[in-house]
């Protein structure tokens, strides 16, 4: 075999080897991410707007769906109950009018804006719309982040 040709074959061989190894490791990594997730559905109805008291933080869906619903004079929004610091569940303190996270002390106003403690950004809001039957529908697969200016999008706030 010519020297040239040998080198060509050698590099083809090595490339094939590298490709196969790379493919194998990609497969291993991909294996960690299943196609189907068995987690509860992401969107659900919470009742009619009139079921919610004005200017109150509604905690009925905290346990089951991890959202707070707040109704103001203008409309409603759905706040995620996941602290943006490290994911603990803050408590709503009516007397102090704030959400307080027990883990490292972050505080959030009723709007979800952070104002104390280590949390780097406000709580997230979820998509909130009216379903055809007039009930309020919360969809957790779409979230809106304040620091990206997303709270202004129409579906982040349900005008009533």
């Amino acid at each position: 075999m010519k020297r040239r040709k040998f080198i060509t074959w050698l590099s083809v061989g090595w490339l094939a080897f590298a490709g196969a190894t790379g493919g194998f490791f990609t497969m291993i990594i991909r294996f960690l991410f299943p196609n189907v997730l068995f987690e509860p559905p992401q969107s659900f109805k919470v009742g009619f707007p009139s079921d919610f008291q004005l200017n109150q933080v509604d905690e009925r869906f905290k346990q089951s769906q991890a959202v707070w619903l707040v109704r103001t004079a203008e409309g409603m929004y759905a706040l995620s109950t996941v602290c943006t610091h490290l994911g603990c569940t803050p408590n709503w303190l009516i007397t102090d009018n704030k959400f307080k996270c027990p883990c490292h002390g972050s505080g959030f106003r009723k709007s979800g804006i952070n104002f104390e403690g280590p949390a780097p950004r406000p709580l997230e809001r979820y998509r909130i719309v009216l379903a055809e039957d007039g009930q309020v529908l919360v969809d957790k697969s779409v979230k809106f982040q304040y620091e990206k200016g997303q709270w202004d999008s129409p579906e982040a706030f349900l005008t009533t």
Binding site: Q63, A66, T81, C88, T89, P90, N91, C101, P102, C103
Partner: peptide, 9 residues
């Protein structure tokens, strides 16, 4: 209980 963080955690 995923909806109740102990205080302190």
């Amino acid at each position: 209980n995923p909806s109740l963080s102990p205080n302190p955690a």
